[in-house]
Design a protein around this nucleic acid. Sequence first.
DNA 1: TAAAAAAGTTAGCCATGACTAACAAATTAA
DNA 2: TTAATTTGTTAGTCATGGCTAACTTTTTTA
Lengths: 228, 228
Amino acid sequence: MTNKLNSNNLTKSEEDYLKALFQLLVEDDSAKVGNNQLADYLNVSPASTNNMIKKLKGKNYVVSEKYGKLDLTEDGKAIAVRLIRKHRLWETFLCNYLNFTWDEVHDVAEQLEHIKSRKLIDELDRFMDFPKKDPHGEQIPDANGEYSILPKVTLSSLSEGDVCKLMAVNDGSVNFLKYVSAIGLVLSSEIKILEVREFDNSIRIQFNDTVETVTRKFADNVFVKKVV
Amino acid sequence: MTNKLNSNNLTKSEEDYLKALFQLLVEDDSAKVGNNQLADYLNVSPASTNNMIKKLKGKNYVVSEKYGKLDLTEDGKAIAVRLIRKHRLWETFLCNYLNFTWDEVHDVAEQLEHIKSRKLIDELDRFMDFPKKDPHGEQIPDANGEYSILPKVTLSSLSEGDVCKLMAVNDGSVNFLKYVSAIGLVLSSEIKILEVREFDNSIRIQFNDTVETVTRKFADNVFVKKVV
DNA sequence: TAAAAAAGTTAGCCATGACTAACAAATTAA
DNA sequence: TTAATTTGTTAGTCATGGCTAACTTTTTTA
């Protein structure tokens, strides 16, 4: 690990791009991430992305060939992991100490993750007694950037009769998170797949004593571990 | 209070200028604050200040006439007070929960004060049970922006034989704060003025069982309440 | 395999908020 | 009360990080 990482002078934008690229490449385990895909993920124009990628290549955080796919260097990855660590620790703090709900934390954590202070985040970690998972069920990287990225099994990938446990939810959409809460799903809920409707890919599920029909789009954002 | 305050879209820079102007005008109770003085306080060029003041006048946060002194509107003051509230609450959190020392908190609080979330700061306030003073002894504005600005009595304004209590310190300089800690002064320390030396305005003081000589510059940054 | 579509790139524009240099007004001092 | 100094303003430049429009390369599909 270079000492560049400790005296990191990246702008908020540069950090956003590195984190986004990491999430597409590593957390979503994409075989190929392209310029337009990254632009789409960040809600900016392809021209802006192209521009920033050039800059990040110059700083040795990104590698790519002209018209080729994007990749991160080890330094780039390390920065992204530190951002993810900060994001998830703040989310945990907001939910566990400041009465925030699932769907309220994301926007604030997006701001807080850019605060530059190694001591702040390590002390926050200690204060909460080194939590391993954030409120959405995601693993929190430790101070050395170590964490296990479990392969994501979506609810939509299961079949009729399967039983699974809710491990995590995609924290990107406030409306989705509100919906999850509203129907009564929480982390560790045991979910049984009653029926997968071929027509529109909607899924009939049962958890606790509730039976619900959810769309494919919903099921794509719910991450589970298969039990049966 | 206008609802502009709740959906405030100010940039970090705009916030910095409003807060700086407030601190010069209200907290330091200056009769007149000019463009260059503000530039100096913020460590930017007079041209930059001039430019920003125009912008803030356009948004009705600042009032001034050409070549005249600067002033804040009620809206401008309200924004500044909210920044001060955020700054001081974060400082309190860092010191009381995250093992930060006096001299470490300022830079991080400067970043944290720009986080935009009403809920975040009000919950942080509640979490700490509504503290009234920050670690440097300054009053913390409440959720309605109410707080008492006590007239600042500096250690340097007292005379031989006076006895006072340390109420607050200027939190602007890390080196100053380290020095205060190093010689053993803490909030509420009782200080006796042993001697004021006319030659260089240095002051000989006694607190606990310590006798120290401090410079005029040091004494200007120590705020006290006269006891005898 | 040639045409269409998608993906990536480039050029040029804009706003923000810094800066310097040059100039104008106001204040202070001689 | 004029001259010097300080203070304030304006004009023009720069970097960052957005954007659109036009263009090129790659991939897909007919």
